[in-house]
Design a protein around this nucleic acid. Structure first.
Length: 424
RNA sequence: GGGCGGGUGGCAGAGUGGUUGAAUGCACCGGUCUUGAAAACCGGCAUAGGUGAAAGUCUAUCGGGGGUUCGAAUCCCUCCCCGCCCGCCA
């Protein structure tokens, strides 16, 4: 959401930044609508003032027993009420229109975000390790997992359809080890506080983080108006909704390991094989709540916290900054971490860290006490630290041996109960 | 799921249809007094929006939404939350 006053003051700036994302100029439409509302609202408020004044006089007249005067005033109020009803309905309609427009409009990027139309415009910032050299033809994770007998897509399909999997045995254990490793790293070394938040949330929580109203088709909705979270970003960020935060507690860093649910509408045919794109997957999420002036530094820090997982697992990756055309709805800047997948001979996204500025904070009315009588919107950031399923994929593919067994990364050994190699 | 009782300003807590945006106390801010502090006393102290150069003024807000009424914190409907009892249940 946006500060309508800021748009009033710098409409051209907003249009220029939206243009970088490929949007048509919007400020005129927004400001015209805003002016329309204020004009109509003024009429309503004047009528309300007249009504309030006359009503008080009626009370006084009644107290004095002057019924004639009271009756006369009542007709006066009736006139005002007609205006209030008619114009009030119009104002509400116009406001709803403006709200619909504003809540469906994406955030503005920071001025220095690289311009580009799509992911081809993303900028590589740095790399870790060289792509894995196996010395034999790499298998993909699905073939490896199925051969091990611990990754079963067919059985999952019988009960749930495509894009689901049953992990079992050592691979299930590996998944749990990765989760525990990530949580321990983020909580014990990076200062994130572990949470177990709700997985079912109301629409207003999703409006707060920006998934609604625009991306409803990507979500699973229950029969009782709850939605399954598509990421723990929703639950963790909404922890500060409708609150005024003590600035001494900032930055507030939170993490959670949760399943994430995505309908993947519109991605038919993409990544249909394996665990890359599932309807349900586990993720360790990082969320930071900061003062506005601290968010950019916190963003870089968060990126480092996510990168550290891959460094310790010794998995090759690169970091890219998303260009304006590839930026998500709520983000002002996003860094993606892409891990090397030998079977695809390319880097694939495994984490996405975004600074949302005050975009989400405005939507959920999350503020901090900047000074006496001066509450300001916080900045919110989120990032994966990391997507567990995709990390499992990366471990399988990068640590595979020619015989189809998987060497357990050193960092995970404390979590694997003595297992050093996963084999059939 | 059923029944009952609640939800009022930073906190506590009055207020069941008429100058109540809301008594009172605490907390907080300014002042008087004091060598200083405390106490006492005096004054101030919600949020959002419109309008205005400003002072100001207008509107909305007593959990959310809707309704009744000339007028709603107060009455009605509905949803949410909290407490207690009953039922069900991992």
């Amino acid at each position: 959401m946006f500060d309508i006053k800021a748009i009033r003051e710098n409409p051209a700036d907003f249009d220029a930044l939206w243009a970088k994302r490929g949007l048509e100029p919007l400020s005129k439409t927004i400001l015209d609508q805003d002016a329309l509302i204020r004009k109509a609202q003024q009429v309503v408020q004047e009528a309300e003032a007249a009504r309030n004044k006359a009503s008080k006089l009626i009370g006084q007249a009644m107290a004095k027993g002057d019924k004639d005067e009271a009756e006369r005033l009542k007709t006066e109020v009736a006139g005002a009420k007609n205006v209030i009803t008619a114009m009030g309905a119009q104002v509400e309609g116009e406001k709803a229109q403006l709200h619909a427009l504003l809540s469906s409009t994406p955030n503005i990027p920071f001025a220095d975000v690289p311009e580009g139309e799509d992911e081809d415009g993303n900028i590589e910032l740095h790399k870790f390790m060289e792509p894995t050299q196996l010395g034999f033809d790499p298998k993909d994770h699905a073939d490896l997992g199925e051969a091990l007998g611990m990754m079963d897509f067919e059985t999952a399909a019988k009960m749930s359809g495509s894009r689901f999997v049953v992990l079992s045995g050592k691979l299930s254990r590996l998944d749990r080890a990765l989760t525990a490793f990530m949580l321990d790293l983020q909580t014990e070394e990076h200062g994130y506080v572990e949470h177990n938040p709700p997985l079912l949330v109301w629409g207003k929580a999703l409006e707060g983080t920006g998934q609604l109203p625009k991306f409803e088709e990507d979500l699973y909705k229950t029969t009782v108006d709850h939605y399954l979270i598509p990421t723990a970003e929703v639950s963790l960020t909404n922890i500060v909704r409708e609150s005024i935060i003590d600035p001494d507690t900032l930055p507030r860093r939170m993490t959670a390991h949760t399943p994430c649910f995505r309908s993947e509408a519109g991605s038919a045919g993409r990544d249909t094989k394996g665990m890359i794109r599932q309807h349900q997957f586990n993720k360790v999420e990082l969320v930071s709540i900061t003062r506005p002036e601290d968010s950019e530094a916190e963003h870089k820090r968060m990126l480092g916290c996510a990168e550290e997982v891959l460094k310790r697992l010794k998995l090759p990756y690169r970091v890219v900054e998303l260009c304006t055309g590839d930026l998500g709805f709520g983000a002002r800047r996003t860094y993606d971490i892409e891990v090397w997948l030998p079977s695809q001979n390319t880097y694939r996204e495994i984490s996405s860290c975004s600074n949302c500025g005050d975009f989400q904070a405005r939507r959920m009315n999350a503020r901090y006490k900047h000074a006496e009588k001066d509450n300001r919107f916080v900045h919110t950031l989120n990032g994966s630290g990391l997507a567990v399923g995709r990390t499992l994929v990366a471990v399988l593919e990068n640590y595979q041996n020619e015989d189809g067994s998987i060497t357990v990364p050193e960092a995970l050994l404390p979590y694997m109960g003595g297992v050093t190699v996963i084999s059939a």
